[in-house]
Design a protein around this nucleic acid. Sequence first.
RNA 1: GCGAAAGUAGCUCAUUUGGUAGAGCACGACCUUGCCAAGGUCGGGGUGGCCGGUUCGAGCCCGGUCUUUCGCUCCA
Length: 482
Amino acid sequence: MSKTPSDNTFQAIISHAKEYGFVFPSSEIYDGLSAVYDYGPYGSQLKKNIRDYWWMCMTQMNENIVGIDAAIFMHPTTWKASGHVDGFSDPLIDNKDSKKRYRVDHLIEGHAEKLIEKGDAAGAEKIVADMDALLANDDFDGLKKLIEDNKIHCAVSGTGNWTDIRQFNLMFSTELGSVAEDANTIYLRPETAQGIFVNFLNVQKTARMKIPFGIAQTGKAFRNEIVARQFIFRMREFEQMEMQFFIKPGTQKEWYEHWKSERMKWHLSLGITADKYRFHDHVKLAHYADAAVDIEYEFPFGFKEVEGIHSRTDFDLTRHQEFSKKKLQYFDTEINQHYVPYVIETSIGLDRMFLLILSNSYEEETINKEDGTTDSRVVLHLPARIAPNKLAILPLTKKDGLPELAKELMDECKKSFHCFYEEKDAIGKRYRRQDAIGTPFCVTIDHQTKEDGTVTIRYRDSMLQERIELKKVKELVLAHIS
RNA sequence: GCGAAAGUAGCUCAUUUGGUAGAGCACGACCUUGCCAAGGUCGGGGUGGCCGGUUCGAGCCCGGUCUUUCGCUCCA
């Protein structure tokens, strides 16, 4: 049962995902759309199972966490308050020789500092003033001319061989309103968190929550990444599972540690070994955070972030107070005081978690058979509780009344979990097909079943078989998936 | 965005220098069988990513484009 890591593993996983109906390139008949993917029959079920497991662990296992489902569209001012409008729409320029990319304002300001060093303070002041005027008008041609006229060169290549200036805006925009005259630019949310912050008081009051408490949410978010790559790891449309935990100011350190440890426990609860995970502390913090850590997993292409835990302070709620002119405060009856709560955020990418599960489960296994020959199989060791199919029900033959018995079992079990029925092909081949989609259990109905009411149950990972009573099948499977 | 490589059946890949495409597995039907990818017969499936050029003739040569992977870059 050894893993077979190789340069081809990632390619093999992508092929497997497509061949068995987990993930397809989007709009494939039109050549696909860059970095957009669709989830197929088994993929959508697996994704839903991961989401449901997260949701259950958050909202069901924690009495002080409740869920919401906020809209993707939000009032445009939301993104001014959050810092997304101003922070992430900077014009950029590339040097063609060094391939180095600069923020235009950084490049020009750097040049101005050099002028000051040379004693030309007036020249520096003028160029910065010119830049500000051009930036205010979004005059990219003028900015490029400013760079060229002042002979600003790249620090790496030393040349002035520049591309045109481009604006990279992180957020996708569209228009709300029927006609252009009263059209209002609105954005597709680049993170789900803001839907939680703006609903803070609604939730706190209606669910009668007392601090500390959390609000959980899953949903799509959209980021116009300059480069989106590596299969479903970085997509422009993706799904987040976020929980914002509201706490008393000053207690953020302990809650940050609490959630850091709780979230790692969640990952390990899926049976993934600890050596595939590591924490990565942020040195450079985002504008909203006073501490941040990534949970990284060793993908076939290296350790990469799956989840982030951020201590967001009172940044978001305070900003929304300022921009909305509405108080977003909590009255703490223990200390008889109003305050803006601090927030610890846990934010995990569902698509990344999906890829993690797929990467961790995929194995090309070589089997040594009793007669000395070897055989191979591709198996997905999916955790039973999130596998798309839980149980395959296979009559050994399609006659002698075996299909009828199998269908009775099917009817009994399918109300409780996903079952798969098949009578085609030899039994070994049917087992292997289930291995490839990660079904943890197969039961075979044979002639002996008619005599003594027992069946063979076959375990995916060990390939071992044992006879159990037909009527115990359902409870055995349930015991493994709950 | 820059650079490199690739794109032929659902998947993995052949098709030696240009002469209108094949295999294995997979898929469907039937027969034989019946506890770890069994055998047989038959069958479905490809305007060779797409567009254009050169040529009597292009999967193969040339240009463009789309998509993917890798390296830079980017990633609050």
